[in-house]
């Protein structure tokens, strides 16, 4: 890249790796939430400053976090869990964490650093290659998804239309996705569509989901309503543990607020929640603990009171405080 630049070529380089920026860039622009939050010459810049630009200075000010101490029994414990990513390379690297009932554990990190693998390991969709997963005091490592669903693990995936919901199916059929075998909705062979319809109508009312009709394919619904429907279904199963990935991505302010309140309510009812998000505001607002993922590692794990946003930001970039000095020292 430097050669290209030296040859008179203008290079735009997009990355979230701080050391790469430091190494190759002359000028750096930080984008946050679709806006330029700052542009500066690289030699003038401190890594800290960049991090502030990235995470936003006023993060925790708008919603002061109320200490939440309704934590109960340990629901989930991961010990040195390792798994491969889609291309067969290590995706999760010896991750350990513990999650209690009534607790929201936030996972911060730039997308693609192992969050998806973590969520899929917990829901049985990805084989664990090392370590152990304990749920409600029992070893559940590599149990099939159906079994984990039966035991009360819910999952709101990142891909809400396509994985969480099936675009071609109507709301009722989507509601049935995980409960079509429950005696409530089906006999030995046949599904009781009426019961399912009644239940869906109830959920739709309760969660205020707007849709064209229960019998319309859900693909035409808006993102916020899809997410509400999806959450409604996952909550309706009365889970002990719910894994929620990027719940507010692509939603407007009102819808986001609604989703957040749902999660808090769920927490208050004693559900353990693992919340994966890229949005630090969201994490700060909802979480009781925050972990940071980088390169498949759990790079940090803080109680919410101890969170130092700057540190979280640096960890997200793959920088540890100790190394920061070296990088600054390294600068030419």
């Amino acid at each position: 890249m430097k050669k290209m630049a030296a040859g008179g070529c203008a290079v735009v380089f997009i990355t979230h790796k701080m050391n790469e920026v430091q190494e190759v860039a002359d000028r750096v622009t930080v984008l946050r939430g679709g806006k330029v939050s700052g542009t500066m010459l690289c030699r003038d810049v401190h890594a800290q400053e960049l991090v502030w630009l990235m995470v936003g200075r006023k993060v925790s000010l708008n919603t002061p976090h109320l200490a939440h101490d309704g934590c109960g029994d340990e629901i989930l414990q991961l010990k040195d869990v390792t798994a491969l990513n889609d291309s067969g390379r290590p995706g999760l690297n010896s991750v350990s964490l513990s999650l209690r009932a009534g607790q929201i554990f936030g996972i911060a990190g730039v997308a693609g650093n192992g969050q998806k693998e973590l969520a899929e390991v917990l829901t049985g969709l990805r084989p664990v290659t090392g370590g152990s997963v304990e749920y409600m005091g029992e070893l559940v490592t590599n149990l099939p998804p159906a079994e984990l669903i039966r035991r009360g693990i819910s999952y709101v995936p990142e891909d809400r239309l396509g994985m969480g919901l099936v675009p071609n199916l109507d709301a009722v059929e989507n509601m049935l996705l995980k409960s079509y075998q429950n005696p409530e909705f089906s006999g030995r062979w046949l599904i009781d569509r009426q019961a399912a319809e009644a239940r869906t109508a109830e959920l739709v009312r309760q969660y205020n989901v707007k849709l064209a009709g229960l019998n319309q394919p859900v693909r035409s619904m808006s993102g916020g309503n899809l997410q509400k429907l999806l959450l409604a279904r996952e909550i309706a199963g009365q889970p002990k543990l719910i894994v929620v990935v990027y719940p507010a991505r692509g939603l407007d302010v009102g819808a986001t607020e609604g989703i957040h309140n749902l999660l808090l309510e769920l927490r208050d009812r004693g559900t353990a929640i693992l919340l994966v998000s890229e949005d630090l505001d969201e994490l700060m607002k909802l979480s009781d603990r925050v972990g940071v993922m980088f390169g498949g590692l759990m790079a940090g794990n803080f109680a919410i009171e101890e969170v130092d946003l700057e540190e979280v930001g640096l960890l997200m970039m793959g920088l540890f405080r100790r190394e920061e000095e070296q990088i600054h020292g390294d600068r030419r």
Partner: peptide
């Protein structure tokens, strides 16, 4: 039927079917 439902879901989205166990 339950089986018909499974076939429908798998046919519409294999990913969702896997997700639903």
């Amino acid at each position: 039927s339950r089986w018909g439902y499974e076939i429908k879901v798998i046919g519409s989205s294999e990913q969702a079917a896997r997700y639903a166990g």
